[in-house]
Simulated scan of single mutants.
Amino acid sequence: MEQQQEKIFQLYIQQLTGHLSEEEEAYVQRMLAEDPAFAATWAALEAEGKEMDVQGYLHRVDEQAALQQLQQRSLRPASRKRWLAAAAVLLLLLSGGYFFFRSTPATPPLAQIKPPVQLLLANGRQINLDNDSAVRTVSNATLTTGNNMLRYESADTAMNTLQVPAGASYRLMLSDGTEVWLNAATSMRFPFHFSGGSREVYVSGEAYFKVAKHPQQPFTVHTPLTNIQVLGTAFNVNTYHNGNVRTSLVEGKVITSAANGLQTTLQPGYQSDYSAATGFAASRFDEEEVLSWINGVYYFHHMPLPELAAAASRFYGITIVTDPQKHARTATTGIMERDKLSAFLNDLETTAQVKYSYKDGVLHLE
């Protein structure tokens, strides 16, 4: 029954957006006449769509504004209007109206108890950080948490580690006034207090830095493959992909270097990709797209399904797998929003014809 409802919904979306084939139109008309359950579901969708003024919404969609909002710049112009219309309706219906006619949820209960953000002190003590506003004294530091952020006061120069699990993000205010946003599955080593003539931290994962300017105390971010040297600037660093480090400069100036002596200097609006095999390669980047994760959004463009499964696992904090051989040539474009896994899966099913199932704590894309 559930698969039938999924199929009806997809056909309804295709009809709304004007790309229902003649064969599919004939199938819909036949089912409306012969299958009372099909007809009831279709009528319920039409009623909900009328109440939500879906057709009016489609006519009012500003194509260029929607294009900018969804960052689908890589689509061919001829296909943009159809894709955006489908996306607009999908987002509209999936946000509420779609589930009204289902007797059981489309997606199995995927909510899991996720590990908390943790602060590992230099003395070995582990502290769970939650979103509740709190002030606590631990060892020789005063920690203030709230609104997904940590501030502290301490003169300790020993290195601590902040660990952000998959499915989460966190913000950190360093003692010098530098702000750091840490993405899912990211860790950062840092001292409570910077001493001497330098400020140094170590990052694995993805983080965005707004570095406070202290010319007499240069700031260095160490990654598994590179070092990023700054005085005062804003940039994003991504080490998610093994063997590659991407540094995207928003403002200021940075010098990023590797252990083999290679280095490159970045200007605002440019990013560098480094790999041990090819060295540094610079290119322009879209700031809104690169930094969207800070607001809980992730854009993907023509991404192979196995790669998307890995990215979605990290983003949503749930294990997602797929058959790399079966879907080696399956690629899709779209958007993920934090805490909206069901919408992402239904969108994926509609746009890429990918089914999904949930078993033993693992989400399978089929």
Score class of each variant (00 low, 15 high):
Phe280Asn: 03
Glu48Lys: 07
Gln69Ser: 13
Thr186Val: 10
Val164Thr: 05
Ser169Trp: 01
Val28Lys: 04
Val297Lys: 09
Gln163Ile: 10
Ala277Met: 12
Tyr358Asn: 10
Leu291Asn: 08
Ala86Pro: 00
Ser195Ile: 09
Leu119Ala: 07
Leu91Ala: 09
Ser74Arg: 04
Trp293Ile: 08
Gly243Ser: 11
Ser275Arg: 04
Ser103Thr: 13
His222Tyr: 13
Gln64Arg: 14
Glu287Lys: 04
Ala37His: 07
Leu174Glu: 03
Glu23Asp: 11
His19Gln: 05
Thr107His: 02
Ser204Trp: 04
Lys81Gln: 15
Thr226Phe: 08
Glu2Pro: 06
Glu307Phe: 06
Val297Phe: 01
Leu93Pro: 12
Ala33Gly: 07
Leu84Val: 12
Asn346Ile: 14
Ala88Lys: 10
Ser79Thr: 11
Ala134Val: 07
Asp132Val: 06
Leu345Ile: 08
Ala37Cys: 06
Asn295Leu: 06
Glu2Trp: 00
Ala277Pro: 09
Phe99His: 03
Asp360Val: 07
Tyr240Val: 08
Gly232Cys: 06
Arg102Ala: 09
Leu45Ser: 09
Gly56Phe: 03
Ser195His: 11
Leu84Ser: 06
Phe285Ala: 05
Leu75Phe: 14
Pro218Leu: 05
Lys210Trp: 00
Ala47Thr: 15
Ser195Glu: 14
Glu251Tyr: 01
Ser21Trp: 00
Phe209Ile: 02
Ser272Gly: 06
Ser95Val: 05
Met52Asp: 14
Tyr170Pro: 15
Ile13Glu: 05
Leu91Pro: 04
His222Thr: 13
Val89Leu: 13
Phe315Trp: 01
Ala184Met: 00
Leu162Val: 10
Glu23Phe: 02
Glu25Tyr: 08
Ile320Ser: 05
Thr137Gln: 13
Met173Ala: 12
Gln14Leu: 13
Arg151Ser: 12
Phe100Gly: 09
Val245His: 00
Asn183Leu: 06
Leu162Trp: 02
Val61Trp: 02
Ala43Leu: 10
Phe344Val: 02
Thr319His: 04
Ala212Val: 08
Lys253Gln: 15
Arg246Ala: 13
Val221Ser: 11
Ala234Thr: 01
Asn131Pro: 08
Asp360Thr: 15
Pro36Phe: 02
Gly96Ile: 00
Ala78Asn: 05
Thr226His: 10
Val138Lys: 00
Ser204Thr: 15
Ser133Arg: 12
Ala88Asp: 09
Gln29Arg: 15
Ala106Ser: 13
Leu225Val: 11
Thr278Trp: 02
Tyr316Ala: 12
Lys253Ser: 15
Glu25Arg: 14
Gly177Val: 04
Leu305Cys: 03
Leu308Lys: 01
Val28Met: 07
Ala47Asn: 14
Thr350Leu: 12
Ala26Leu: 13
Gly243Gln: 08
Lys50Phe: 04
Leu16Ser: 12
Asn148Asp: 06
His222Trp: 06
Gln325Thr: 10
Thr107Ile: 14
Val254His: 01
Leu11Lys: 04
Leu121Gln: 03
Ala44Ile: 05
Leu345Ala: 12
Gly18Arg: 02
Ser95Asp: 15
Ala106Gln: 11
Leu162Gln: 03
Tyr208Glu: 02
Ser103Gly: 15
Leu84Met: 13
Ser133Phe: 12
Val254Gln: 04
Arg73Tyr: 14
Gly243Glu: 06
Val164Leu: 07
Met336Ala: 11
Ala43Val: 07
Thr157Trp: 00
Ala352Phe: 01
Gln14Arg: 15
Lys210Arg: 14
Ala65Lys: 09
Leu174Val: 13
Asn183Gly: 07
